[in-house]
């Protein structure tokens, strides 16, 4: 089986959106395009309220991804874990569909005896290691996030360290919301390493609104822009995972 490209949006926030489109609707839109959305809720001394918690789960649910609420000290390992888990989930989804075609009924991996499951899992692990990965990181920079931003930066550097250790290529792009003029602002275009963040991240100004929905919508167009450009250069296996979604 050939490895394709896994596309993910990683949303890092600490609460509820209060501006623009419904975030979970935008997450659904992303899923339709084969892009998984993962959400990490960051707490420090504050706690995320019930409403914020629900929204976080709902976005990840609609976006076919993973959500997790953590204290900022645990952010690095969580970012890594969530990204990894979502990759495995996506690949497993693809494999399950293949299995259903072969085995008929609504058979999934779980219905196989453990030994066979082990063999399938080896394929999943192999794909997770060799697939190309594109992660668009969306960071909430509303006022309450201000003092958490250094930790966010460290955890993103750590993520690129982990993902770049894989055999497949990884590329990252970073957006923040709210932006200076618009709802969203691009901080870093597609790049394999996030070192460049070190210079830009501390200078961020934080704003009052939290336009999560519009941020996701904007992020999607960034994926698409890149794809249409790439399309001109003709890429074949790139879209493998999306088509199977």
């Amino acid at each position: 089986m050939k490895a394709g490209t896994l596309r993910q949006i990683l949303l890092i926030t600490d609460g509820c959106s209060n501006h623009g489109e419904e975030p979970s609707a935008m997450a659904e839109l992303a899923r339709e395009q084969g892009i998984t959305i993962n959400v990490i809720g960051v707490m420090e001394n504050d706690v995320i309220d019930e409403k914020g918690l629900k929204e976080i789960e709902k976005i990840a649910g609609s976006g076919g991804g993973v959500s997790q609420v953590v204290y900022s000290q645990q952010l690095s390992q969580t970012v890594q874990m969530v990204t990894q888990k979502a990759m495995t989930q996506t690949i497993q989804g693809v494999i399950n569909r293949e299995l259903q075609q072969i085995l008929g009924d609504s058979k999934t991996m779980e219905d196989l005896p453990p030994d066979k499951r082990g063999e399938v899992m080896e394929v999943v692990d192999e794909l997770g290691e060799t697939s190309k990965l594109e992660v668009l990181i969306l960071v909430d920079t509303s006022a309450s996030m201000k003092h958490k931003l250094p930790t966010v930066k460290d955890s993103l550097l750590d993520l690129s360290l982990s993902m770049n250790a894989r055999m497949g290529d990884s590329r990252f792009s970073v957006f923040v919301f709210p932006g200076k003029r618009n709802d969203v602002e691009k901080l870093l275009d597609w790049t394999p390493n996030l070192e460049a963040l070190t210079a830009t991240f501390p200078k961020l100004s934080t704003g009052g609104l939290t336009p999560t929905g519009p941020a996701i919508r904007e992020a999607l167009t960034h994926f698409n822009k890149k794809r249409s450009l790439r399309g001109l250069l003709s890429h074949d296996d790139e879209q493998y995972f999306e088509e199977s979604m």
Binding site: S76, Q77, Q80, Q84, E129, D158, L161, S162, M163, N164, A165, R166, M167
Partner: peptide, 22 residues
């Protein structure tokens, strides 16, 4: 040759900036 996925920061050379997680 593959990437280490389960590690503990204190014992991980990547965390200390002394190498990759390959």
């Amino acid at each position: 040759g593959r990437s280490v996925k389960e590690f503990t920061e204190f014992f991980d050379r990547g965390y200390w900036g002394l190498g990759s997680r390959k």
